[in-house]
Design a protein around this nucleic acid. Structure first.
Lengths: 242, 242
DNA sequence: GAATGGCCTTGATCAGGATCAAAAGCCGCC
DNA sequence: GGCGGCTTTTGATCCTGATCAAGGCCATTC
């Protein structure tokens, strides 16, 4: 209690929110400090290990979340087990399908992940009361729709080689926001296994592995460890994306 | 002038809007009669022939629209001309990417189409002033995102036969909203050519044609004219969707 | 009603990626 | 340090759907 009030007095912003990206680039940027304080009473930071299931397809969802660290994959499966990754979420993305009774996708931690969870009802009340928040979430939803459509081109019309290059390009440009955007090269850890990448690209893991080997042989990338990729020249990689 | 005022007096609802589906299931349902009257001063009903380009990729958009009749296809192309249809819009869908400076897709009339066009600025002002309208559009955007992700599974993981069955199932369930939802069968005209269907499914038109022939040979569908399809038992078709 | 030009269908062949199979790295664990 | 369980890589073969090619159907036009 006492500390709570001191926090508010000190800065008007809850401790947990002070260094959170969601406040700058994510949905919390739409909230003033009073709303932030009110919301933070309901939120809970949770850490999940890679592989943890965060939400299941056709299961009721009882909370939304902001991704604070790590990568979350959204997947859908056919009855016979064929699987497709339909989205990847990076910090500070909002996680969850607003207003939906149940999730249309399975959400799984691709890497170790920190989430800032909010109970469904609490967020929906806040959205109803604050059009600016809904506007923010609308902007993200529109961006996700743009990305989904971009990816449909990749899935439907690109060759295996172009698909793998496109995936690497996506990761290189999304994963490390701290990297200098102008830098020619990038180094990063793949947040997905070969099998996951295959599920993202509509390929088999063998094909993914072969195409990675080919990109390495062609010196477009270096693979310094099984999950470690270095791109010396992003532009050369982009040329391979079709 | 005089007629205008009479219309308003008569029913509070602009003539053009009275029989429009967008007022019931589309975005205009979020507007009260005064807003409807105000908005209708800016709208213009336009008819487009099949094949007309309604908006071009990377071109500035100066208006949004509601689809009142017909089917609009949204496409994206790779530099070398490979094409992918990334969405289909049916009445009374909203057409356009809210808040975007330029379109990320090409919109083209797949059939003869009637649009209710609204200038970009007019709609954006209305959205800013009316959170309920943004909420409506948010709902449609979320639905489109769900559909895009559903389609990613089809593109990435289904066989050619399953893709074609899935397309027919989509059309059968979306095209004729007046049809009895419980009816076992459906009859409809395909709004797309074989080439368009191929671009939607990530196939070639020859493969689409062959798979259609196979579905006909297997008595899952009847093709009574080149664009006319009859499905006797929707459930049998669904079983082919994978 | 013949000619023209779009679509569409069907056939023959080809190739890209899947599948099947095995070996090679990698890592935790005893 | 060596063992067992992994994911990943690489190889050999197969098969689905692409490509190349020809012909058919239909509407429009003269």
């Amino acid at each position: 209690m006492d500390t709570d009030r001191k926090d508010i007095h000190n800065s008007d912003i809850p401790v947990l929110c002070r260094s959170c990206d969601a406040r700058h680039k994510g949905m919390c940027g739409a909230l003033d400090s009073a709303e932030l304080v009110a919301l933070s009473r309901h939120t809970r930071i949770v850490r999940h290990a890679a592989g943890d299931e965060l939400a299941a397809e056709s299961e009721p969802t009882e909370s939304y979340a902001n991704v604070m660290r790590g990568v979350v994959k959204l997947t859908k499966v056919l009855e016979d087990g064929r699987q497709q990754i339909v989205g990847l979420q990076f910090a500070p993305d909002f996680l969850g399908r607003l207003f939906a009774r149940e999730s249309a996708v399975t959400a799984e931690a691709a890497s170790e992940v920190d989430l800032c969870r909010v109970p469904k009802g609490a967020l929906e009340r806040l959205v109803a009361a604050n059009p600016r928040l809904e506007h923010r979430l609308m902007q993200q939803t529109l961006r996700e729709l743009d990305e989904a459509r971009e990816w449909m081109v990749t899935l439907g019309r690109k060759t295996a080689a172009e698909k793998v290059a496109s995936f690497l390009y996506l990761i290189a440009t999304h994963l490390d926001p701290s990297a200098d955007a102008n830098a020619k090269g990038r180094k990063f850890d793949l947040p997905l296994t070969r099998g996951d990448i295959a599920d993202f690209l509509g390929l088999t893991l063998e094909t993914v592995s072969r195409q990675l080997s080919r990109l390495r042989a062609d010196k477009v990338i270096a693979i310094t460890a099984v999950t470690r990729v270095e791109v010396a020249d992003l532009e050369r990689l982009r040329k391979r994306c079709g």
